[in-house]
């Protein structure tokens, strides 16, 4: 009898601080599996965000730098330019990437920085207690939108993948979800591709991953997985928005 599934080598053997059912853990594991499969653990540097994933440096065995809120793509730019033989990735939530860090991500993508961005979108601010984020859906109840997000007052939920896909510096851009086994497999493929375009020096690679926040959504973990299908995917469609060599 052989082992068909076990903890990837790049994933630290520790208990994470994430809430029960939080899909950050799945995404960490997928990144670790990709790092293992590409054999790049010793030359990979992650840049951690501010948000729930701020402690990601405790969970993946590569080197890490923690950046100021939203500035991970700028820090990753510096690391990659100083050490071009390293594989550099940022791991950012929607509060980090789509709100305070919007300028950094847009310009890093536009410059075609050879970095990989793992963008975890759960439509809410998790760490600070469930406030409305730029990605919060219309009508979604949060701590700061108790009657649901009002488009007239707060604007529309921001689709970062579609927006960034228009930039010529971007080589690979996909949106995936981790709310069921089939989607998890697709998410891993997309993460691998986003690392590959960096390794092949083709340009900027990013994967937007629709994630859950059972605690702040006020849902059981399994219900939160369904909520991604019911509410998030209709507004944030899955797919590859840009692949090397073509604009879709």
């Amino acid at each position: 009898m052989k082992v068909v599934f076990e903890r990837p080598r790049a994933l630290s053997d520790v208990t994470t601080h994430y809430c029960p059912g939080c899909t950050h853990g799945i995404i960490h594991r997928l990144v670790a599996e990709v790092i293992d499969e590409l054999g790049i653990l010793e030359r990979t540097i992650g840049v951690a965000p501010v948000g729930c994933a701020v402690l990601a440096y405790n969970y993946l065995e590569c080197d890490w730098q923690q950046a100021a809120h939203g500035r991970a793509p700028a820090v990753a730019t510096g690391i990659k330019r100083a050490l071009p033989d390293r594989v550099v990735f940022t791991y950012q939530g929607d509060g980090d990437l789509a709100s305070i860090g919007t300028a950094e991500i847009v310009h890093a993508a536009n410059r075609g920085e050879r970095i990989t961005v793992i963008y975890v979108n759960n439509a809410i601010y998790g760490m600070t207690g469930g406030q409305m984020a730029p990605t919060t859906l219309e009508g979604q109840v949060t701590a700061t939108s108790p009657r649901g997000r009002d488009i007239k007052q707060a604007g529309h939920p921001m689709r970062m993948a579609e927006m960034l896909a228009t930039l010529p510096g971007v080589s690979y851009l996909a949106r995936v979800a981790v709310n069921k086994p089939a989607n998890i497999m697709k998410a891993k493929k997309a993460i691998k591709q986003a690392f590959m375009v960096q390794i092949d020096d083709l340009g900027f690679g990013m994967v937007e991953i629709l994630s859950t926040c059972p605690t702040n959504w006020g849902l059981q973990p399994a219900k939160a997985m369904e909520w991604v299908d019911e509410k998030m995917i209709p507004y944030y469609p899955l797919g590859e928005f840009k692949v090397p060599g073509e604009v879709k």
Binding site: V4, F5, E6, R29, P181
Partner: peptide
């Protein structure tokens, strides 16, 4: 089960 587990709790043998 192992692939949906956020905490990498499960090891699978076959």
């Amino acid at each position: 089960c192992a692939r949906v587990c956020p905490d990498c709790v499960i090891k699978v043998y076959k």
